[in-house]
Computed example of a mutant assay.
Amino acid sequence: MFKRLLLALGGTLVVLTAAARAEVDPDYSVVLLTENFPPYNMAINGKNFAQEDNIDGIAVDIVREMFKRAGVKYSLTLRFPWDRIYKLALEKPGYGVFVTARLPEREQLFKWVGPIGPDDWVMLAKGDSPISLNNLDEAKQYKAGAYKGDAIAEHLLEKGLQPLTALRDQENAKKLMAGQIDLWATGDPAGRYLAKQEGISGLKTVLRFDSAELYLALNKEMPDEIVAKLQAALDQMRAEGFVDDILNSYL
């Protein structure tokens, strides 16, 4: 009995020691995934697949600098659709996805680094639209478009709305101008940036209904030491004004 106990304790010690080595392994590399979500992350060529230097945006610039300062290796890939890369980060050790809203229902699903930037949630309408809203309940009488799988779309469903979802958020800008939807539930500044890229301007905000902070979400098995290093690097960047400088350079 005593011998079995010693063997069990010895096995536990080996596991703990291996885990500790993994946390400080200088060769540990994080697989980072992102999507086209201008102006935070985007493929330079505008396509739905890009890697490494072919990706830019506010969050990309911040994350690159953060990993550089933390001394953590990484690879970076932009893919489509969002549901797929979110699921990969959720299920695969060593993976992370950005940017995503840190919501209460997601809190225990990931380890978080951030905030990287703000994301106000708004209802946009055409500039000449007579629609005026005081709350989301009043929006139920209109056709609202949203981005499939996005936190905003999920929030609207929870509030009893039935948004018409699109696989690319910029499609909602076109639908709005074509009269296929009355309202576009999107992020600010992301929505206005996307509309501008489609040659659409003059949209007005008829409701600002929520606000979220955008984060890097890391798989739950990510070593705590790496998470701490990344957070410390980001905190230092924000204190130095680096984060604000990046934000201002895009907007």
Rank of each mutant, 00 (worst) to 15 (best):
K229F: 14
T34R: 02
P163L: 08
T17A: 15
E105G: 00
A232F: 04
A8P: 02
A50F: 04
N48G: 00
G160E: 02
S249H: 08
K47A: 12
A212G: 14
P118S: 08
P118H: 05
A20I: 07
Y86G: 00
L230N: 12
R102K: 15
E91D: 13
I200T: 10
A139M: 08
N219F: 14
P163R: 06
K159I: 00
L234W: 06
L216H: 03
L76E: 04
N41V: 09
E198H: 01
K68L: 10
E154V: 06
E65L: 01
N135W: 09
G71C: 04
K87L: 12
G191F: 04
D120R: 11
A139E: 00
I226R: 15
I58G: 03
K229T: 09
D169G: 07
A185Q: 07
D224N: 12
L251W: 13
H155R: 13
E198S: 14
R69M: 10
K175V: 00
L9G: 15
G11Y: 06
N134I: 02
F49R: 11
T17C: 13
P130M: 07
D119W: 00
L7E: 14
T205M: 06
L136R: 04
Q51N: 02
E23N: 03
A217Y: 10
D25K: 09
D25W: 10
D53P: 14
H155T: 15
L16Q: 04
D224G: 06
E158W: 01
L13P: 09
E213W: 12
V243Q: 02
R69W: 09
D182G: 06
G96I: 05
A217N: 04
T186A: 13
V243H: 00
G114C: 11
W121I: 03
D61I: 00
G96P: 12
L76M: 10
D245H: 08
L161W: 04
A8Q: 12
A8D: 11
Y86A: 08
R79S: 14
N248V: 01
D83E: 15
I58K: 02
P39Q: 08
D128F: 12
Y193T: 15
D128Q: 13
M123D: 05
E91G: 02
K159H: 05
A144K: 00
E23V: 01
G114R: 02
I152L: 11
R64M: 05
A139G: 04
E105R: 11
I58Q: 10
R102W: 07
